[in-house]
Design a binder for these strands. Structure first.
Length: 243
DNA sequence: AACCTCGACAACCGCAGTCGT
DNA sequence: TACGACTGCGGTTGTCGAGGT
């Protein structure tokens, strides 16, 4: 619709950020905040577009970023949240304090999606050709190789609970081996139960791993809570229908 | 030792939603 | 109400390093 490009391409630097640029950006944000990303590069003296600055800050420079490998709890949470929410990475990230949407998205595409796909295939077909670099990231091989997640990882979230099998996905939380997702039973029963129990005060309810992320907007929580409750109700309906 | 392949992750791009005028 | 500017999000790509051949 004739939108102008997000930034002027002329003279703006691209590619990996240098340590000096990082320092400049951090120093500027600590002093002046980031109320206006578009104007920030000029004010800070950076030859980057505002979008690039924002991304760098959010994904890498923010002080509350948690670096390092994802724990099995976090991976399990991502899988479950993805089953509920689809590719709503920012919403999922809001439930994982210290993790960014980009990071979660990367982990999903590089590890978790393949893990789910491999676990849904017959045994013997999922063996990775290469040894995993990081032990924690070793491809999961379920005991019988028959574990599967009924909801396709690719399936986008639907506005209708009836065409999204939340019930199945929740009922099959033990699709993952206990060694990898120890939190499954306790974590999800607790968090989801809390969501339902707090249905009267949606602002307080939520599926958050660890401490409540104070930075996550309440509207986001409301949205997630809405879907959680909706799916829970749909799950109850489907559970009954299976009887 | 050199080359190849693949995994991991940072960064970019374009679209959609929101807000101000 | 319409329009433009800006921000945020999700998909995709590029780059680098490690492991395999």
């Amino acid at each position: 619709m004739g939108r102008s490009p997000c930034c002027e391409k002329m003279g703006l630097k691209r590619g990996p950020w240098t340590a000096e640029e990082d320092m400049t950006l951090v120093a500027h944000i600590e002093q002046h905040g980031h109320s206006n990303w578009r104007a920030l590069p000029n004010q800070a003296g950076l030859l980057r577009c505002g979008k690039s600055c924002r991304l760098r800050w959010i994904n890498y420079l923010r002080p509350d970023i948690k670096r390092g490998n994802f724990t099995s709890e976090e991976e399990g949470a991502i899988i479950q949240l993805h089953a509920m929410l689809g590719n709503r990475w920012s919403t999922i990230a809001a439930r994982l304090p210290g993790r960014t949407d980009n990071e979660i998205k990367n982990v999903w595409h590089t590890h978790l999606k393949k893990r789910l796909q491999s676990s849904s295939k017959p045994s013997g077909q999922a063996a990775p050709k290469r040894k995993a670099k990081k032990p924690a990231m070793a491809a999961a091989s379920t005991a019988d190789g028959s574990a599967s997640v009924p909801v396709s990882p690719e399936q986008p979230i639907s506005s209708s609970a009836t065409d999204y099998s939340m019930a199945s996905s929740l009922e099959n939380t033990d699709s993952f081996t206990s060694e990898e997702f120890q939190i499954e039973d306790s974590f999800w029963s607790e968090t989801l139960a809390m969501t339902v129990d707090n249905s009267g005060s949606p602002m307080d309810a939520g599926v958050t791993l660890g401490a409540q992320d104070s930075a996550s907007p309440s509207s986001s929580n409301d949205e997630v809570d809405f879907w959680v409750r909706l799916f829970m109700q749909a799950g109850e309906v489907q559970s009954l229908s299976h009887i």
